[in-house]
Design a protein around this nucleic acid. Structure first.
Length: 240
DNA sequence: CGACTTTGACCTGCGC
DNA sequence: GCGCAGGTCAAAGTCG
């Protein structure tokens, strides 16, 4: 039943996203050709033109947040490792900033329409300013790597997707997943035998992972992004 | 060969 | 209507 419910939810959520996109397009005023294309798509979904192009009572403004990343000043790439998988689809030099602005789309989930703009700060070129538009319709790749209900069986973190779209050309080593897999595999190898040694090794592994993650710039960047997002949400909630 | 980046062209909104 | 600037598309190139 849970699976069915989850599937139904996903279907409905995807339809909502499609409708939101269409209403936004119509509101912004699209060309006749594009309107026709959207209309065809709408018909295939079972909605009439009025439903799709009727101006919404409340405009759907995508959630926008801005996060600053401290980088090496010598590193001129616009790659921000925040844990998600991004696909770059454009780059522009804007008037107010001599450094180019890169445009990314979330490529982790097909239906995810979150966009990200990354540009160096005018004041401090070592700071990357990432502007996020929209909300992910999926869990972070980190949590997606952990199967639901995994209880000493799954948790194969070695399958953790490699964050960022830099295609691992950068020099940063991918040591964390290996370490994590090593630890969890060791920990969960003996099924159901919770010995004292296992508890000790668990504590040891936790310490080892903590020190490993602390030294991993990718993880700290992702953590900073997550905390910033949380603070942003809280600020919005308090404002309401 | 697939996934991804690069980059010039194109689209769209906005001010004049 | 025109020009500018920001945003997006898509073909070509790159890499593992």
């Amino acid at each position: 039943m849970l699976t069915l419910m989850h599937e139904s939810y996903n279907v409905l959520h995807n339809q909502l996203i499609v409708l939101r996109n269409k209403t936004t397009e119509s509101e912004l005023g699209m060309s006749r050709k594009r309107k026709h294309e959207a209309n065809v798509a709408a018909e295939s979904c079972g909605y009439d033109e009025d439903q799709i192009f009727k101006k919404p009572k409340e405009g759907f403004k995508p959630k926008v947040s801005q996060i600053h990343f401290q980088t090496d000043a010598s590193d001129m790439s616009l790659v921000v490792k925040d844990g998600y998988q991004w696909r770059k689809y454009g780059q522009k030099v804007t008037r107010d900033n001599p450094s180019p602005r890169a445009y990314f789309k979330c490529s982790f989930a097909p239906g995810c329409s979150v966009k990200r703009k990354v540009q160096r700060s005018v004041d401090d070129p070592s700071v990357l300013v990432a502007t996020y538009e929209g909300e992910h319709n999926h869990l972070s790749p980190f949590w997606s790597a952990i199967p639901l209900g995994s209880d000493k069986q799954g948790l194969n973190l070695g399958t953790l997707p490699i964050p960022s779209s830099s295609k691992s050309r950068s020099s940063s080593p991918r040591r964390t997943p290996d370490l994590m897999r090593l630890g969890f595999d060791t920990l969960y190898a003996k099924t159901g035998q919770e010995t004292e040694a296992a508890v000790t090794s668990q504590q040891f592994l936790v310490q080892q992972m903590a020190s490993s993650l602390k030294g991993d710039p990718n993880f700290t960047a992702a953590l900073a992004a997550a905390i910033s997002g949380k603070i942003f949400d809280q600020a919005r909630m308090e404002k309401w």
